[in-house]
Design a protein around this nucleic acid. Sequence first.
DNA 1: TAACTGTACTATTATTATTAATACAGTTGT
DNA 2: ACAACTGTATTAATAATAATAGTACAGTTA
Lengths: 125, 125
Amino acid sequence: MFELDIRSRKPIYEQLVEKLKELIINDVLKGDEKLPSVRELAQQMTINPNTIQKAYRELESQGYIYSQKGKGSFVHPVEKSENKEELNKVREELKKLFAEAIYLGITTEEIQAMLREVEGGEPHD
Amino acid sequence: MFELDIRSRKPIYEQLVEKLKELIINDVLKGDEKLPSVRELAQQMTINPNTIQKAYRELESQGYIYSQKGKGSFVHPVEKSENKEELNKVREELKKLFAEAIYLGITTEEIQAMLREVEGGEPHD
DNA sequence: TAACTGTACTATTATTATTAATACAGTTGT
DNA sequence: ACAACTGTATTAATAATAATAGTACAGTTA
């Protein structure tokens, strides 16, 4: 499914959250698609089930997946602008990053080009 | 100078790095301006000097400040696109954030508006 | 019923962050 | 030369967090 950097200083569960978020955002994992079960993924990656569970719990609280006892965990289909907290967090991060990028000398033209590039590749329906 | 969230799960030295970077990027701390000494800042914030040093070391490795034995630590004046590693890291983060923002339903128009906003407020010379 | 699911809990270990106490070398002003 | 600053380095002890291990319970499915 993906790989983690075991010797990174970033906690495993955080890396898991990031990677899964990426897959969901890039529509590799489609809406309502079932994720590997906690135990299954744990075995695949040879890490502890509790660590997977922690990542799933985090993803759920951020609104990216939902879980049902006995059934499994699934990708939360996007209903636009649903998670307001997450939305504002992203807005804040964008502003910070823009300031940093400009500070480092990245031109607004380049930034806009990157935006168009990402925009073009994201018809997630 | 600023405040840290002592009960955040994010390490103190990381918070320090972020805050200082922000001040530098937003030109609150000007080029070649002297930062508080390791011991001084440690006393002000009632945290250990080693923690400050760790943050300063990180900022130096990222190219945001420079330090001189016996003299102090200073804001590194920007010579555009100097730190290529940092540049590419920011580019990568931008792409990820764009994808996430679009996924969450933020329009490209809004993103462009935010960019213009930040752009306008950053004549750091 | 058997074999799956998520979830919760406690205990233990491993890893990392933070503090603490020194020490040394360079700078600055007196 | 001296005192009082600077950054830097090192070692040790403690605190905080991440990760593992083992177990249990409730819901689902065939």
